[in-house]
Amino acid sequence: MITDTDTHRATTEPVLRIDGLRKEFPGAVALDGVSCEIRREEVVGIVGPNGAGKSTLFNCIMGVHDPTDGQVHLNDEEITAEFTSRIVRSGVSRTFQLARVFPDLTVRENMVANQDHADEHILKTVVADAESTPRIDDLVELVGLWDLRDRKAGELSTGQKKLLTIAASLLQDPEIVLLDEPTAGVNPNLVDDIIETVVELNDNGATFCIIEHDMDVIQTLSDYIYVLNNGTNLVEGTPDVALEDPAVLEAYFGE
């Protein structure tokens, strides 16, 4: 990936662009003019203290919340406040801090269930014929779950469930994947597996935006980060520079 010598960012075009996003709730402003962009084949981190607006930002991108103001663009298309299903079909995929799996279905059946089932009855498809496609097999193997492909997802560890959701998020070959706390609650032995998986996927062309509290993970994975505080942009830059900014240290530690 070619990087700009001035910003150290990828010179590829923006995939996702957020312009002046504001979200008001009764009695509170969760986002107040946040702007950022994620360029193709980048891994961009979104960090900040609790209450900074990170999860609200993801929810606004995905259409869970309608922004009060501002715009979200995927490539050249505005997707602000569209239905979540349309946003997903347009090319934005997401995982959650608490991994969402079908516990009574196997790893392979979970992958089948996460395919695009327009015009199909999803339960009939999964139960009657949980047939793997080459892409399902490749993704299950890539995230290190091949030996567990016939195990029920409810029997997996937290880290294994998160690896499964990362694999599922890539099924439709999305333009960008939003990862929400991919290592939270994960056994340290599996954190490295998650990191290695994201790195390998990124090396193969996947684009990621990551919310993560573990600064070691952010520094390892991210090409560029945005630091939010109190719902606004605070600092942006490469992790080694941005995380040492006095404003960031003040926001996190009061230093």
Rank of each mutant, 00 (worst) to 15 (best):
M1D: 07
A10G: 01
E13F: 12
R17H: 00
D19K: 11
E24H: 13
A28Y: 06
A28F: 05
A28L: 08
A30H: 06
S35W: 13
I38L: 05
V43I: 15
V44I: 15
V47S: 05
V47E: 06
T56Q: 05
G63Y: 01
D66T: 15
D69P: 00
Q71V: 13
H73S: 04
E78N: 14
I79D: 02
I87S: 00
G91A: 14
V92E: 03
T95N: 01
A99E: 01
D104N: 12
V107I: 11
E109R: 02
N114P: 00
E120K: 09
H121E: 13
L123H: 07
T125Q: 10
T125Y: 00
T125I: 14
V126R: 03
A128I: 01
E131K: 14
S132K: 03
T133P: 02
E141N: 10
L142F: 10
G144Y: 05
W146C: 02
R151A: 08
K152V: 05
A153C: 12
T158M: 10
K161M: 06
L164W: 00
A167M: 15
A168F: 13
D173I: 04
D173V: 14
E175H: 09
G185P: 09
N187H: 13
D192A: 12
D193W: 03
I194D: 05
T197Y: 15
E200T: 07
I210D: 09
H213G: 06
D214E: 12
D216S: 10
V217D: 09
I218M: 10
T220D: 03
D223L: 11
D223W: 05
Y226L: 14
T232E: 15
T232N: 02
V241F: 04
A251I: 14
G254Y: 09
